[in-house]
């Protein structure tokens, strides 16, 4: 059993491959911890009740809402955000490049969350159909694009997705 009083505590996570620590209260949301404590401002906050999907990150590989996760619950886990997707500085990942090519973003506020959902989704579903992709995306609200270019970008990447475990 681990008891934490409602005061500040140290939380340690592995963020995009780097061990990081920060201070927070038990009530601190993972989204706030990542943004304001660790500086991962690519995590965007859009609703704080789990509907819009902008704050989606992966924790131990699973896409989830960082606004519905407490930072203390993520303690000791591996967290990834959009900042950690590019293979090296100046080079976009395949998915990021496809988003750019397809004009799959406008204001870009919902985009990092969508990319993180895709990271989990494409690792499990090798050859998703368009309805599969749209259902996965239904966990995200985008107000700019009307979604179709996002769908095209994901389908294009998935069609070359040979190394997926299910392939």
């Amino acid at each position: 059993m681990k008891r934490l009083r409602h005061t500040r505590h140290t939380v340690a996570i592995r963020l995009n491959g780097i061990d990081r620590t920060g201070e927070c209260e038990p009530r601190t949301l993972l989204s706030d911890f990542l943004r304001y404590e660790l500086g991962a401002t690519g995590v965007h906050v859009g609703c704080e009740h789990g509907v819009c999907g902008a704050c989606t990150v992966t924790v131990d590989g699973l896409a989830q809402r960082s606004c519905l996760t407490l930072a203390v619950v993520a303690d000791g886990r591996e967290v990834r955000t959009a900042e950690g997707l590019a293979p090296e500085p100046g080079v976009l990942s395949e998915l990021q490049a496809a988003f750019r090519r397809h004009h799959a973003l406008q204001c870009g506020f919902c985009t990092p969350g969508i990319l993180m959902s895709c990271a989990d989704f494409l690792a499990r579903v090798a050859r998703p159909s368009e309805p599969d992709v749209r259902q996965m995306l239904s966990g995200h609200l985008c107000r700019c694009t009307g979604y179709s270019n996002i769908v095209s970008a994901i389908l294009e990447v998935a069609s070359g997705n040979e190394d997926s475990p299910d392939a």
């Binding site: 690519g42 995590v43 900042e83 870009g108 506020f109």
Partner: peptide, 13 residues
């Protein structure tokens, strides 16, 4: 392609 996108896609907006 958009000039804006690289920053937005890499979480550095």
């Amino acid at each position: 392609e958009r000039r804006e996108d690289v920053a937005l896609l890499t979480g550095t907006g």
